[in-house]
Design a protein around this nucleic acid. Structure first.
Lengths: 274, 274
DNA sequence: GTATGGTTCAAACAGTCGTTTGAACGACGA
DNA sequence: TCGTCGTTCAAACGACTGTTTGAACCATAC
């Protein structure tokens, strides 16, 4: 009734499951949750319409498991890499770029690994975060909230000069730039137009070309995000964000010490704005 | 047969049009294009189901006109403000912050003006950019491509040190952070929790409070985006995104400047990543 | 051999989708 | 007063939605 166990069932049943996963993934990338029908999925997968309800219990179950298949390994790898770098730092707190790398490298590795993600992995990641369907939104926020919280703490330690409120917003902006960039089909079409083609001698496979594109894209994205995270603090209501924070939250005061303060010249670019 | 002309028809017909617009707007914010049905719209608008096809020719026509109602004034105001600042500069090229302000200020003004946008205007703007429906994507890219091109030129003049390819990407990231931030219903719920409430003496109206929220949000967003746009250039030759990230820690990366960015990728960097 | 149990299948379920129809309404000019 | 025309209305259209059903399949266990 539930999962496949014997050799025969494992071969047949698991195979249809995978085909349905792949079909749902491709269709979700193009049409979103509401725009993808079960008949589209099963037709593309070469499976019977009832197979979705048999294997996954319904449309919602299919998309939840489809996302978890890709996103669970991603978040595990992210946490593992973050812990590894923390142990390697021996007490020294990680830098902002190192924390960001702990988010980027596993995503890139999965995009390179066809078995666990494939060339469309990053697009899937982005689409999942911008889909309007409440089913997916609730699923994602429930399942991956601990990981996000852990990285939020890591960024807070890496950027002690940024008040917690401000940092929460900047991480939100960062996630937005990431999700939108990765989700947009336009972006991946623009790569070929904007970036010069790789001049490798051996004709690269389709996968290798896409992987190189991913790396170029994230190489462009990382400096942008790091600069944004470390930007001078804004002024709210005539006060600096730091003052606003210290007036409203007691926690910010504990982070005022440390080396991060010298890095921020809070007056430098303020005058240029507006 | 087509639009209303006489006094009577202008009162009745235009009124239902507006009610349908408002209903479609609210539902589109929550459910997206595919998740919003004509019956949901007409029921909320208190109109007959056939009214949508009568006034707009169909679902696609409704959403196109609904978006144009909000976004046309926005883009006109953006271009007007940009031209105004250019004339005020008397030949001196505008700064990055000024160009960004020409995008922000009209959006904020429309969000403050209930008649031409209202408190949900920024959310609508964001949702429109992330909706997966090909109908809306094609409509937006066709209709507002000239405006985007104009601002791209303005940013290019404001940031002469950034190569055009790189700038195109950074504007894409910027648009992503904007759209995702504005679209997310979570963001607007977080504002109350993260930002200290305004300490005005008079009890603020609901609109005034939302406007203040918008201003705080964009005040936080602007330094982030400006810093990202002005970030040190990435190095794309033979390095992975991870190494580029860790090398650019704390704005230490070198400005290669001009076109000094060598784009020859020497060899495959497969081995560099685990 | 037969029985078992996971899997697939065609067919149909009730419901919703966007759209169309043709009659009715109601203010206007003649 | 009558005809006109823009607008609204209930009702229905065929197509599509997600889901369910019960029979058929087939390698395995007995």
């Amino acid at each position: 009734m539930l999962k496949a166990t014997s050799a025969h069932e494992a071969r047949n049943g698991a195979d249809t499951r995978e085909r349905i996963f792949d079909a749902a993934e491709a269709l979700f990338l193009e049409h979103g949750f509401d725009g993808t029908s079960m008949r589209m999925v099963t037709a593309r997968a070469g499976a019977n319409l009832a197979a979705v309800n048999y294997h996954f219990g319904g449309k919602e179950g299919l998309f939840r498991e489809m996302l978890a298949r890709r996103l669970d390994p991603l978040h595990e790898a992210r946490l593992a890499l973050l812990g590894e770098r923390r142990r390697g730092a021996r007490g020294r707190s990680l830098g902002c770029a190192e924390v960001l790398a702990a988010m980027f490298i596993p995503a890139l590795a999965l995009a390179r690994d066809r078995a666990r993600g494939g060339r469309d992995f990053l697009r899937l990641l982005g689409r999942a975060y911008v889909d309007p369907s409440p089913v997916l939104r609730e699923f994602l926020s429930n399942r991956y909230a601990p990981t996000i919280e852990t990285f939020k703490e890591a960024f807070a330690a890496a950027l002690p000069a940024i008040p917690r409120q401000e940092l929460a917003w900047r991480l939100h902006f960062t996630l937005g730039a990431l999700a939108y960039t990765l989700a947009g089909a336009d972006a991946w079409r623009l790569i070929a137009a904007l970036d010069p083609p790789p001049c490798s001698l051996a004709a690269p496979s389709a996968d290798a070309r896409d992987t190189a594109d991913d790396e170029r894209l994230l190489a462009r994205l990382a400096p942008y995000l790091i600069a944004g995270l470390q930007a001078p603090l804004p002024e709210l209501d005539g006060r600096t964000a730091a003052r606003a924070a210290s007036e409203s939250t007691a926690r910010a005061a504990t982070y005022t010490g440390g080396d991060g303060l010298s890095r921020h010249r809070t007056q430098q670019q303020q005058g240029a704005m507006q």
